[in-house]
Design a protein around this nucleic acid. Structure first.
Length: 374
DNA sequence: AATCGACCTTC
DNA sequence: AAGGTCGAT
């Protein structure tokens, strides 16, 4: 087999695939030994993090080397240099401690389904649901285990087309453990098909953030928060801040937010994300991802050792200005290739009126929280 | 415009 | 109770 392989020379401080591939952005990547297995477009991809960078190979020979290389750079968002407010000590510390987190640029359709599945759910079940959907896609390659220890073979499958997804029945999905989300999947697939299928979803990428979110929310199972997740990871909308109780909690603690965690009405949601956007700046979406990862780690540590809370009094490690940059000069992307967005009315079958999203914010940006009292 | 309960499983 | 959405009030 004609195997394409190479390496992206990037420091672990810039890209840490162990972190980004299992934190709840993607749900179909698997790690066996040191190797990560997954699919990008129609490429069956293997990834391994080494000191020199991320080694990659494509095991189904669908792509040219340069093609896969630039796809990976895009996938891991490596041409972007993240910006953080210079006076945000909390963020600077978090970025310094939890390095290598990227705001992935994922397939819009797969991301859309992923986050419909994510409502009221946890990563392991979302993963199994997404693996089920993936099992309906084209088989690109598969590996057999050479050991008895790991008898499972990994199947690399392209994410199915909307047409294929639309054939799934609620009954079948419920049997596959989708619970009440089964109905959402069926309805949304039909709606997307009516709207124009794959190309309708693709054009959302060229819409403004607010418009994209409004259109996403016309679909069943996509509310405000899920729409933000799709916008951020699937449509590359970096101002998107998926807001949930965890984010409110950490912002209350570290950013003097002073908001209740419950009763998140549409109005409150817009007000809060507007303030956080002011606070976190241009790359607010990525900031959210980093801080969320930090919370994930903190809660894991807490679970492991419910020790005394005196830990907090440890002197903070002084971090110098954080530089986030790519070692290798990324290739230029041609933006001309994009089909211009249509001005005409996009036909959408709305089951409900799309809510307007307010973007104004009268409130002042948040101040950093002062040192907590102990 | 805000509040409330239901909804599939599972940790 | 959980990483939300939907429909009714």
């Amino acid at each position: 087999m004609n195997k394409v392989a190479g390496i992206i020379r990037v420091d672990r401080k810039v890209l840490d695939i162990d972190k980004v591939l299992q934190m709840g952005m993607t749900f179909r990547w698997r790690k066996h030994g040191q190797i990560w297995h997954g699919v990008i477009g129609r490429n069956a991809v293997q990834l391994e993090q080494k000191n020199e960078g991320v080694a990659y190979s494509c095991v189904n020979g669908d792509s040219s080397d340069s093609g896969l290389n630039s796809e990976l750079i895009r996938f891991f968002d490596l041409e972007r240099k993240y910006e953080i407010p210079h006076d945000d000590e909390n963020l600077t510390n978090a970025v310094g401690k939890y390095e290598g987190i990227r705001q992935l640029q994922l397939d819009p359709i797969e991301t859309l389904y992923s986050f419909i599945c994510s409502s009221n759910n946890h990563i392991s079940r979302i993963s199994s649901m997404m693996t089920f959907l993936g099992s309906k896609g084209d088989l690109l390659a598969q590996i057999k285990s050479d050991t008895d220890v790991e008898p499972n073979l990994f199947r690399y499958q392209a994410f199915p087309s909307i047409e294929t997804l639309a054939q799934l029945t609620e009954q079948e999905l419920r049997a596959a453990n989708f619970g009440y989300r089964a109905k959402f999947i069926v309805k949304t697939s039909a709606s997307i098909l009516e709207n124009g299928g794959n190309s309708w979803v693709e054009t959302l990428k060229s819409e403004d953030y607010v418009v994209a979110v409004e259109k996403l929310m016309t679909l069943a199972g996509i509310g405000r928060k899920v729409a933000d997740c799709i916008a951020l990871y699937g449509l590359n909308k970096r101002e998107s801040i998926p807001l949930d109780v965890h984010l409110i909690r950490l912002a209350n603690r570290d950013y003097n937010l002073k908001e209740a965690e419950k009763g998140l009405t549409p109005t409150r949601y817009e007000g809060i994300v507007a303030r956080l956007r002011e606070t976190w700046g241009r790359d607010a979406g990525w900031v959210q991802t980093v801080l969320f990862y930090k919370e994930l780690q903190l809660s894991k540590e807490k679970k492991k050792s419910p020790k005394s809370k005196r830990e907090k009094n440890k002197p903070r490690t002084e971090k110098k200005e954080v530089k986030v940059e790519v070692k290798e000069e990324p290739v230029e992307l041609q933006s001309e290739a994009q089909v211009s967005s249509r001005k005409g009315p996009v036909v959408t079958t709305r089951r409900r009126a799309a809510q307007k999203i307010k973007t104004e914010c009268d409130e002042m940006p948040l101040k950093k929280a002062k040192e907590e009292e102990f």
